[in-house]
Amino acid sequence: MKQIRVESLLASPQDIVTFQSEWSKGGSGGLLLLALFAGNVGPGLYMMSFLMNFTVGMLVGFLIVAVGYGLPHLLFLGRKERFWRGMMHPDTSWISRGFIFANIFMGFACLTMALGSPMLANMIPESISIYYNPIGILSSVFAFLLAMYPGFLFASVRAIAFWHSFLLVPLFIVQAFGSGIALLLVLAHAPGVSLHGGEHLLFPEAIFLVTSALLILGHLFFTFSSGKAGRTSVMRLVSGSFKKAFLLGALSCEIAIPLAVVALTFVGLNKSMLIPAELIQLCGIYFFKYCFLNAGAYNEICSEQVFDSIYSHSGESRPFN
């Protein structure tokens, strides 16, 4: 029996606020979510590890960027063989800029780790190894740019009110540092690994968590008051289909639980829960990115004003009055 595909062409779509789906639904949406998460955690871990002179953390941060950020992005593309074209327009496109930041970061990070590697110490002349710090600083600068650029990328999308907010730039930076510290503290507790001065990271971690909470609340308030699309996006997160993922997954796991545990650890009351709390924080950041992508809604095309324009020249506000 022959099957015929039927499309609902004749069913006119009602004009409502529609959520974007290309960057959130299905397998490709999952790849982008993974890349967004890794593009935040990886550079954060690398920067904090370089600051703490923690080679294992730098290596893991580099690998997260290379495998968790680069590979999913490549697999997400519709025409993977043309990925190199992605760097052609850094003058206007944030994707091009991010592509360039990622590649330069990986280059400098490789050099830094090679110069700092104890295994290669005998093979590298001293006249070259003195460049460890300058090259390390350069790699950290590009790690910072890599963590920051998705904020600009989303903020530049005027069509989607929930993304069109410059609070995203500081938010993504703060989340990168916060998640970097979280993963660094987890790695420091791995067998055979030692980190000096890890306890000094608790105070900045608490600062990053509080800042992150304030920025998220500010972003929700800003987008809620931006119009119908922004309101719909926020309502989807706080009372709609993504309520559990956002309130429990993102806000509780990313902010509330880690902040409580860090505060208890900081005053010396409870240290055993620190590592689970840092892992929960990483899950929370993943949930935040998931909710963030899924809450992106296009502005209403035929708004109330448009409808008024349609009837404006007829001299009648209600045709059947």
């Binding site: 595909r5 960057w23 997400f76 496109s93 990328l153 999308v157 502005n299």
Partner: peptide, 27 residues
């Protein structure tokens, strides 16, 4: 030249673009 990143679909305020995933036909 298009590599299928779909950034243009996000940026279009009129949501007027479609991603051509794979070849399909009606029968």
């Amino acid at each position: 030249k298009c590599m299928g990143c779909r950034y243009c679909m996000m940026a279009c305020p009129y949501n007027a673009r479609t991603f051509y995933k794979h070849e399909q036909w009606y029968h």
